[in-house]
Structure formats: structure tokens, C-alpha cells
Design a protein around this nucleic acid. Structure first.
Length: 871
RNA sequence: GCCGGAAUGGCGGAAUUGGCAGACGCAAGGGACUUAAAAUCCCUCGGUCCUCUGGACUGUCCGGGUUCGAUUCCCGGUUCCGGCACCA
């Protein structure tokens, strides 16, 4: 059977050869250029999904290409193995989270292997292994020593459904990022990492990444860090001791500050209430604010509510007494939880002042005229000249800012300051399946860190627990909780919070460089050889959280002397989602394709109720929308190479990919076509590897043109790997070449092999097969060995191209008249403008268009076009 | 509201710096092979029109502009996607 395409057989064969030859295992070699290629490691959720297939197909193409280019490639894999779904599975089906996780890992590892990814499996890590998470604990202790980890009571985002705390980044539109239930505020003690200590550096270093990270990720991180420059200003209380500190970005408007507003959570509120005797009213207001859920409270549209505290403060510059209010629009978490209100120059303050009839004073004007404060319709927020501002009157606002800050500092009334939107990272989770925080609470000594020598604090795996009960089972497990204080040896209590799993994924990329090291998280020599990651590939959903935390950890690792590298990821590629149209029945909701049947007109109807099915637009594949496709099915039917090829061909990596069964079929057809062509030429190709080729056909002969195309294709595919990463066009280029090869006469058309073609075809295959290998590695490896190569293609050099052969000798130059193509000239490349002009003027069809007209101008771009402008 | 990104045939997409719009693939239609089907191969395939083996006009979200020439650059707008959203 000549036409048979035995992909199942050869895919298994090459996977086995790669494994046995250990070709993808690597070690440090200072003499070779290193290339660290990494895709974001998966959460072991059960089985691979199409998003994984795409992600790892992209990364694998890079890894294979750079290995063939001669780089020492590190391409590892591991498991982000702690986290909530494991506990949810435990609750649903009463299996231990650890068992559930390790089964999933086994399943998914096997799947990875059946895709033939070029991975160094000796470096595999799983974050739930004590050998891994002990170093998460170690990092925690190091940070604790350096005051980068601390415990505080705070208002936290609380998800009732998950019974845990969420970081701000994990709250999406007021709902939990995992279960999408509303998030409530709750006061809780917990552990924090002082990421704000690095805010400035995390912001500034983004500039180094510009150009090699997507702009939008840089922008998102900038917005998230949210630097603002301004000043703290102290407003003394009127007829009382003490003062209120506010933060403002507009010290130049200080003379226009006519009232103060406190956040409802600000502890000052109740103190002031006591003085004014207005406790009842203020408490009622605070309770009312608290009762509103976070979604509503943080939505911009709703009108601002406020209450007067009955107390006054002194504006330090005007020395006037101004009222102190409380309102829900002021946030306790930002700045100082108190603001000065300048209604003339802040729209929100303006609306508030109008609503409660508070005074408005203009202190900045665009020109000379001062508008009427009683009739103005909105705040003037732009730059201008200061008025009504004492000694600062007449200054441009920008200068006034500096001068007022200087003055405040001189008079001890405030200081210049920078604040950030970024908050410290709350890492405590009231959950079982995570890294235990290595701390002991002693009634005598207080908080005592677990000594380094006692690490890891093992998560008890033999825990007996009713998973359905919810909450954190660790807190109810005496063997874990009851310990002796490492300092005084008296009875103490172990911390039962576990770490946010984002800790685990904040340094795994460094661990891969020294995966089995038992003395420290990373070996300093190895980590500095491999780091930073050269190509990091993953989903855009990690643009802020994971990538910001990882950057933070990298800087901490640097500062504690583990590495010299300060930024972990040199290049970032954010791949798009895998999408498919959704099917929806008006009665039964989302449907799988096999839950629909065709009616007599061939339109899809719901199999259950017979109603017409709406075909919705293409959306990210998800179980809840029932628009998923199982990679396993396609793997069995078409093989790994076809899936990989399709995933890369259907759209460029950063864009969304629409899954298409017929598209997969197309990729399969292409591979079969090349296969069949190779079989037809078997006699010529088999064991041709060591043959000397005579490659000197006339450049403008048919075989000469084939050579030209071959070398051009090598050039195009190579260029793509170096700069644009649009593998869809790389694959197109290979397809075009195959189309040209198939068009020549030969055994596949039932003809004799014409003499001049034979060596050209052999050369074509020597180039084409390696070009395809990053996309369809088993297929390429099989053809490579058929051609008589003894060594693995995966370890062979990337094909070279000869610029002089890739060079196009004859070029078709279009002739335009008034910008419209009217004729074409076939000329040798590099034909001079003079000759082109003469040829264009002499051209017959040009004459038809120019007859009776005056030629005003002729624009000539050599090798590109001729444009004749007529009057 | 603010900040990004996108918009090209029936569909996914291509067009390196302003220089032949629609590569490559999918779908569709026609044909060959076949008892038939599958597989494979060949042809057509943006739109409108004409005197139809050719040719004209038009066409890259819409409206302007710059230019000999704009999918590409500039200004204004529409729609969609994403992020942030009382941040003082």
C-alpha cells in the first residue's frame, strides 16, 4: 500500500527514539549559546484541552528551531499543582486532593508525551511536592527576615463560596475570579508580602521590556501599579489636638480646598463622632455603606452619599476652618483614606459640593478671567494660572505644585510623596491544598518563624476530614496545629493559613534550572547560566497577576543573592484563545454538537425539544458553554503532527484561533500530500543523504526556478522564527513550495524523472523536511530517516540558504498609469530606472493609455513599479 | 468615563519600509477517476457591468486629508474585543 500514511506507527516510534536518546535533556555548557524556552506550566485539571495544545505547540516550535540552530536549549515542564479545584473535587467525589492531583498529572504527562513535545522531563517539578514547596516556605522566611512579609488585620475580599480570601487581582467586577460569586468585605488577620517596596522598580523596569513584551501587557502593568505623584498634607483639627493627613496630586489647588472627606472605614470617623456627639448618625451611615455589596459600591455611576461629622479642620494655607465629611467615594485602601476636596477643580468633588451646598473656590484659571463660582457647571481640571492663592497667585500651576510642596515641607505641614495603586500582596488562604505558611503562634513569644532547618512544614496527607464541611481542615487537625514553640518550647499553635498558589508559580521558572537541588531553591551558577527565560509563552489572562508576581520574586531572589538576573522573561508571547461557535437552544441552553439533530431543511434543532438551535458567535472554548473539543479524539484520528500543524497554521499565535474540523482535515491533507509525493519519489530519495548533488541548473530553467523557490522558502521560514513568529505564514510558504514541486513531471504524474530535476528534488527535500520539523516533528523525522540520515533530525542543523540562489533574477514590474496597473514588464532584477522608463514608454499597451496625453511625470522604483502620471 | 487593540472575499487569514489587495488554507460550484462511495487529481471562485479565450469600473468598517500611489501615514467618526474604573 503505497498511499498508506502510518502516522500512528511512526509517531510512537520517534517519541520512543527521542526518549531513549535523551536528545532533549540538557546541561550547562558555557561554550554554547543557551536558549531557555518556556510555556506557562499547566494546572493539572484532568486532561489537556485545546488551549494547552496550542500553547505547547507554539513553544515547542521555538524550542526545536533553536536547538537545530545550535543553541543549548532548556525546555522544561511541570505542574502548578496546588489550588482550589483539587479541593472542590474532593468535596464533590470524596477523593483526596493529593490523589486527584497526582492522577491528573499522570494522565496529562502521558498526553504531553503523545504530542511529542521536545521536553527535558528530568527537570519536571510539581508545586505540591514537599521538595518544591519547602522552598516556597524558605522564600517566605527570607522575606519575613527582611520585613517583606508581615501580618496585619485588614479588610479583605472574601468569597463565601470558596470560603477564602482573594487578592485584589483575583476579584473581577466584584466577583470571584474562579467561581464568579459576589465577593464581600471582611476583616481578617493575614499575611502580606511587601510588593509595594518594589513598586518603583517594577514600574521602571517595564521600559527594558518595551519592544519584546506586548505593549498592552506593559500598559496593563503600568496601570495596575498606578504611580501618582503629589503630596501629603496635614490639616490640623479645629479646636482640638491632632490633624488629618491627606494625599493629593494637586497641591497647587490647596487654596481651593473647602472641605475634607474621610473614608467610612477611617478610624478617625468615630473619634470625631464622639467629639461632636454625632455617633448615632455616623454609625448608621457607616453601616449603610457596609451593607452595600462591593459591586455596587465600586461602580462609578451611582450618586455619592455623604454625612457631616460635626467637626472642622484648618486649611494650613488659608487658615480657614473647613468642615469634615464622610463619604463612600473615599477609599480607605488608597492614600491615607482621607482627601481634601477642591470642588472647583475636581469633577467628583464639584458634584459632591453642589449636592450638599458646600463652598466652591476657584484657584486655577486658564486665562485672566475668573468664572463665577455660583454658576459654573463643571470643575476646571486642566492646567492654568493660580489665583486666590496668597503668595502663589500668578504662578503657573506646574510651578505652584513644586513651590507649595517646598513650603509645606519647610513649615512642617506636609511633604512631597508618591503613592501607588498597587497594594501589598495578601497571600493567606483559608484552604488545605496549598503551601503551609511556616510560622508558629506562641502565647509567650508571639509570632515565631519555623527555623529553616525544620523545613519543609509538611502538609499532612493522612488528614481525616469531612470535605463537605468546607473551610480549612488544617485548623481542625490537632496533629498539625499543636506544636512546641521553637523558641521557648512551650505549647503553641501552628499557622493554618496556606499560601496563595501564585507564590508557587512566581519562581518555578528558576527552579527548572536546578530542579533537584536540595541545598537551596536554585543553584546560583546554573540559574545564572539559564536565566532569564528567552521566550515565555502563555495566555494574556496572566498579564497582570502572574507576570507581576514573578517579576517581584525575581527581584527578591536577586536581592537575597541567589541570582544576578533582575527580570525573569526577556520576551513574552501572549497567545490567543482557542474559540468555537456556541450552540444554544432557547429552552435547554448551551448544547454540544451531538445534542443537536438536523430537521427536514437541514437546519440544526435541539435533540431534546426539537426547537431550532441558535448558532452563536465564536467564543473561548469552555465546558460551561459546551463548545469544547477533546484533543484526544483528534489525536487518535489525525495524530499529533496534524493537530500541531493546524494549531499553528490557523492564525498567528497572538490572535484567537477558531477551531475548525475541516481546517484540521486540511492540515492532515497537506501532510499526506507531502508523504505521498515522497513515496512516489522513493527511488530517488531513499538513502540519498550522502549523495553528492550536481546543482547547477540554468537559473531561468524550470529546475532553476525550483531551486530558487527552495532557497527562498528556507529564508522566509528562518526569518519568521527570528522576528515575527507568524508560523501560519511559515507553513504557507512550505505549502507553496510543495505546490511547485508537485507541479513538475515525475513518478507521481506517471512520468520518468527528467534528469535535471532529480538532484534538485533531493535538495528540496533536504531543506523542506527540516523546515517542517518544528511544526510536524514525527513526520519530518520519519522522512529524514527514509532519506538515509542516521542521526536524529531533532539534533541536526537547521537548513541554510544561499542568498544568490534565493535571489530572484527576473522580476515582473507593473506599469501604472495614474496609479492603475495597465501593463507589466519582465526585466532582470536591478534594471536601471532609465531602462525601465524607456521600456515603459515603448510599451504598446502603455501607448494606448497615453496617446494624446502629456506625460507629466514618471515615478520609477527599481524592481518594484513604474507609475506614469499624465495630465 | 479613561487606556489599549482590532475591523480585509462565504470563512480563517496574507500583503518586510507607502508600491500588482486577497498568498496559503477552508467552504462552495463544476469536472476527471470509480459500478458506487471514500481517497485523489484538475478547473472556477470579492462585487458590478460589457461588445465575454478579453476588458471596464469598483472594492481592505465609514467620512475627510497627505501622496504620483494608502489595507499601510494623519484627522474625525462607527462597531467589536480587552484592561482599568470613585485611585484623590
Amino acid at each position: 500500500m503505497k498511499d498508506e500514511f502510518p502516522f500512528r506507527k511512526f509517531e510512537r516510534k520517534w517519541q520512543e527514539r527521542w526518549r531513549a536518546s535523551r536528545v532533549f535533556e540538557c546541561s550547562e555548557d558555557p561554550d554554547r549559546e543557551k536558549f531557555y524556552c518556556l510555556e506557562m506550566f499547566p494546572y493539572p485539571s484532568g486532561k489537556l484541552h485545546m488551549g494547552h495544545v496550542r500553547n505547547y505547540s507554539i513553544g515547542d516550535a521555538f524550542a526545536r528551531y533553536h536547538r537545530m540552530k545550535g543553541c543549548n536549549v532548556l525546555h522544561p515542564m511541570g505542574w502548578d499543582a496546588f489550588g482550589l479545584p483539587a479541593e472542590n473535587a474532593a468535596i464533590e467525589r470524596n477523593v483526596h486532593p493529593g490523589d486527584w492531583t497526582s492522577q491528573n498529572i499522570d494522565t496529562m504527562r502521558a498526553q504531553f508525551k503523545s504530542f511529542g513535545f521536545a521536553i527535558d522531563w528530568t527537570r519536571e517539578v510539581a508545586t505540591c511536592h514537599p521538595e518544591y514547596y519547602r522552598w516556597c516556605q524558605w522564600f517566605f522566611l527570607k522575606m519575613y527576615e527582611r520585613d517583606l512579609a508581615y501580618r496585619k488585620k485588614s479588610q479583605v475580599n472574601w468569597c463565601q463560596a470558596c470560603r477564602t480570601v482573594l487578592a485584589n487581582e483575583q476579584v473581577e467586577n466584584g466577583t470571584c475570579w474562579r467561581c464568579h460569586q459576589p465577593v464581600r468585605m471582611r476583616e481578617l488577620n493575614g499575611w502580606f508580602l511587601r510588593i509595594t517596596h518594589y513598586a518603583e522598580e517594577l514600574l521602571n523596569d517595564l521600559e527594558m521590556l518595551r519592544g519584546s513584551w506586548p505593549d498592552r501587557v506593559i500598559t496593563m502593568q503600568q496601570n495596575w501599579i498606578g504611580r501618582s505623584e503629589g503630596a501629603y498634607v496635614d490639616f490640623p483639627l479645629d479646636r482640638d489636638t491632632g490633624s488629618i493627613r491627606i494625599f493629593t496630586t494637586r497641591p497647587d489647588t490647596l487654596y481651593g480646598a473647602t472641605f475634607i472627606v474621610l473614608a467610612p472605614e477611617n478610624p478617625l470617623v468615630m473619634k470625631l463622632a464622639e467629639r461632636s456627639g454625632m455617633q448615632a448618625g455616623l454609625q448608621a451611615f457607616i453601616d449603610k455603606v457596609r451593607s452595600v455589596d462591593i459591586i455596587e459600591r465600586t461602580s462609578t455611576g451611582i450618586p455619592k452619599e455623604g454625612v457631616f461629622t460635626g467637626c472642622y479642620a484648618i486649611n494650613p494655607l488659608t487658615e480657614e476652618s473647613i468642615p469634615i465629611w464622610v463619604s463612600d467615594f473615599v477609599l480607605m485602601e488608597y492614600g491615607t483614606g482621607a482627601i481634601m476636596s477642591v470642588p472647583a477643580h475636581d469633577q467628583r468633588d464639584f458634584e459632591f459640593a453642589r449636592k450638599y451646598q458646600l463652598p466652591i473656590r476657584i484657584v486655577i484659571v486658564p486665562g485672566g478671567e475668573i468664572p463665577d463660582e455660583d454658576t459654573m457647571e463643571k470643575a476646571y481640571e486642566a492646567e492654568g494660572i493660580m489665583v486666590n492663592s496668597g503668595r502663589f497667585t500668578g504662578m503657573p500651576a506646574a510651578e505652584g505644585k513644586r513651590r507649595i510642596i517646598d513650603y509645606l515641607e519647610m513649615e512642617n505641614m506636609g511633604e512631597g510623596a508618591v503613592t501607588y495603586r498597587l497594594r501589598d500582596w495578601g497571600i493567606s488562604r483559608q484552604r488545605y491544598w496549598g503551601t503551609p505558611i511556616p510560622v508558629i503562634h506562641c502565647p509567650q513569644c508571639g509570632i515565631v518563624p519555623v527555623p529553616e532547618t525544620d523545613l519543609p512544614v509538611r502538609l499532612p496527607v493522612d488528614i481525616e476530614f469531612d470535605w463537605k464541611k468546607g473551610g480549612n481542615p488544617l485548623a481542625d487537625w490537632p496533629p498539625f496545629v499543636n506544636v512546641r514553640c521553637p523558641r521557648c518550647n512551650k505549647n503553641a499553635r501552628r499557622e493554618t493559613d496556606t499560601m496563595d498558589t501564585f507564590i508557587d508559580s512566581s519562581w518555578y521558572f528558576a527552579r527548572y534550572t536546578s530542579a533537584r537541588n536540595t541545598r537551596s531553591p536554585v543553584d546560583p551558577v546554573k540559574v545564572d547560566y539559564w536565566m532569564p527565560v528567552d521566550h515565555y509563552i502563555g495566555g494574556i489572562e496572566h498579564a497582570v497577576m502572574h507576570l507581576l508576581y514573578a517579576r517581584f520574586f525575581q527581584k527578591v531572589m536577586r536581592d537575597i543573592g541567589l541570582t544576578r538576573v533582575g527580570e525573569p522573561f526577556t520576551r513574552l508571547l501572549t497567545q490567543g484563545m482557542v474559540c468555537l461557535e456556541v450552540l444554544k437552544c432557547p429552552r435547554d441552553g448551551y448544547l454540544y454538537p451531538d445534542e443537536t439533530i438536523q430537521d427536514e431543511n437541514g437546519s440544526p434543532v435541539c435533540a431534546k425539544c426539537g426547537q431550532p438551535v441558535m448558532v452563536g458567535r465564536s467564543e473561548k472554548m469552555s465546558k460551561s458553554k459546551r463548545n469544547t473539543k477533546d484533543p484526544e479524539e483528534y489525536l487518535a484520528r489525525y495524530g499529533a503532527d496534524t493537530m500541531r500543524l493546524f494549531s499553528l497554521f490557523a492564525s498567528p499565535p497572538e490572535r484567537d484561533l477558531d477551531w475548525s474540523d475541516t481546517g484540521v482535515e486540511g492540515a492532515f491533507r497537506f501532510l499526506k500530500r507531502v508523504w505521498r509525493f515522497a513515496q512516489d519519489w522513493h527511488e530517488e530519495l531513499a538513502d540519498s543523504a550522502n549523495r553528492d548533488l550536481h546543482l547547477d541548473p540554468e537559473p531561468d530553467s524550470s529546475p532553476g526556478r525550483i531551486r530558487n523557490r527552495v532557497h527562498q522558502t528556507v529564508k522566509r521560514v528562518t526569518a519568521n522564527f527570528e522576528s515575527r513568529y507568524h508560523f501560519n505564514t511559515s507553513i504557507s510558504a512550505c505549502m507553496e513550495l510543495v505546490n511547485e514541486l508537485v507541479a513538475i513531471p515525475g513518478p507521481h504524474t506517471g512520468q520518468e524523472v527528467p534528469e535535471p530535476y532529480c538532484d534538485v528534488i533531493i535538495e528540496a527535500f533536504r531543506k523542506l523536511v527540516p523546515l517542517l520539523s518544528p511544526f510536524a516533528p514525527h513526520f519530518a523525522e520519519e522522512l529524514w530517516s527514509m532519506m538515509g540520515n542516521r542521526s536524529l533530525l531533532a539534533a541536526s542543523p537547521w537548513p541554510e540558504y544561499d542568498e544568490s540562489v534565493a535571489f530572484e533574477d527576473m522580476i515582473i514590474v507593473p506599469i501604472q498609469i495614474q496609479g492603475k496597473v495597465r501593463a507589466r514588464l519582465e526585466v532582470p532584477a536591478g534594471t536601471s530606472p532609465e531602462v525601465l522608463e524607456a521600456m515603459a514608454r515603448a510599451d504598446e499597451s502603455v501607448g494606448r493609455w497615453t496617446r494624446g496625453k502629456t506625460i507629466r511625470k514618471i515615478i520609477i522604483v527599481p524592481d518594484r513599479l513604474v507609475n506614469i502620471v499624465i495630465s
